[in-house]
Design a protein around this nucleic acid. Structure first.
Lengths: 208, 208
DNA sequence: CGCCCCATTGAATAAACTCAAGTCCCGTGG
DNA sequence: CCACGGGACTTGAGTTTATTCAATGGGGCG
């Protein structure tokens, strides 16, 4: 089997580095349907990528944190839109058509980022398809716990609506689920956006 | 695929081509947790990739069709397992450490496949998170319609359980939803696994 | 021909949603 | 500094949707 038959897409694997760009909360970084001629590396802040349906339903695909590289798309348009959750700084990289051999080892890194995004999307799909509200909430809390300086103390930068749209739930269910976890003694709500995890082990047991 | 290796030994993303392998229905192509030292190109048949939870719940990530290239993973282990749905033939490619410059433009193709898989996973997540049973079913039928020789006649190779696990539903709900679509005159069930779409337009309207 | 698995159908239950009210922050302005 | 206003969050009651459990039908293969 000739390898050239694998596929004829994505001839672009080189790019140029742009300046650092700053975004205010809720500001759009790139839009659904926009030309996907560049991708993004997040420097600081949190950015959400999401599908928006005409009827107002929204599915948040991912919350990106500093270091994340995203915004590659299959095709020429962005499938998702990206918006800053809080104050965010990014570097934009513009695609260029250049031979791989000239790019000095960069494509593998990109490939790695693409793979990480793929892996995340797959995990997310499992969460959305086969989990109850509590299980979803527990998984969400653990995700953020994993990247907090203090694993037991989470500072949420996003609203309940954002969480709901990420987990495929309604705001009300998110709220109720959090109070349920609180009443079960697994978490402690210091404020609406600051949560102490009192039993990470118990949260873990919920998903596997 | 072993991403760590790739990032560590930057500049090495080549692989060797293996023989054609054949799989019987329900036979495992690779397993969850297995070493991800190779990836797959599907030649004929259909293969499903899925997460299996200890309690029996299963989420099918994708149904792959001939031409699809998959089985890259972020990390050293397979996150998903792959099983033949019907008789399937694949070519396995084993990752090797070789300079990019010697690979004659292959990584871009792989990147393209990764991007396609990513795009699919994202669409799938939206479907799982923000759709009703009918909407999911309609999307599923249209997916298969798009790659059938006759767009209006679908031959399903997978069971109702497979469909349910792909759409995040139960078998019963899948069945009920199909009868509902039948009663609404949108589809015609020639047999359990052969469906005629009588109104593709109406099915499309359901999702956007 | 008959069996067995797959699929369908039914009835009751549970989970999450909708609609509606009420509360808590938090920033603003007096 | 405190009162106020408004958005975000929580809580409640009732409804919808999909699930669970259970039984029946049907088609393919030995």
């Amino acid at each position: 089997m000739n390898l050239t038959t694998i596929n004829a897409s994505a001839g672009r694997v080189s790019f140029t580095t742009g300046p650092v760009l700053y975004f205010a909360p809720d500001q759009e970084v790139y839009g659904q349907g926009g030309t996907a001629d560049s991708f993004i590396k997040l420097i600081s802040g949190v950015i959400r990528t999401c599908h928006c349906l005409h009827d107002g339903r929204r599915q948040i695909d991912a919350f990106h944190v500093p270091g994340d590289v995203f915004g590659f798309e299959f095709g020429t348009e962005h499938n998702l839109s990206a918006e800053a959750v809080n104050e965010a700084a990014v570097i934009s990289y513009r695609w260029r058509g250049m031979p791989v051999a000239n790019t000095d080892g960069l494509p593998e890194r990109l490939f790695g980022h693409a793979m990480r995004n793929l892996s995340r999307a797959q995990d997310h799909a499992r969460l959305l398809g086969r989990s109850s509200a509590v299980e979803k909430m527990a998984a969400f809390l653990l995700e953020w716990s994993a990247q907090s300086p203090d694993r037991k103390l989470i500072n949420l930068v996003m609203s309940r609506q954002d969480i709901a749209d990420y987990l495929g739930l309604t705001v009300e269910t998110v709220s109720r689920t959090l109070t349920q976890l609180k009443q079960e003694g697994l978490i402690h709500l210091l404020s609406a956006r600051q949560i102490r995890l009192t039993s990470i082990a118990a949260l873990r047991e919920m998903n596997d």
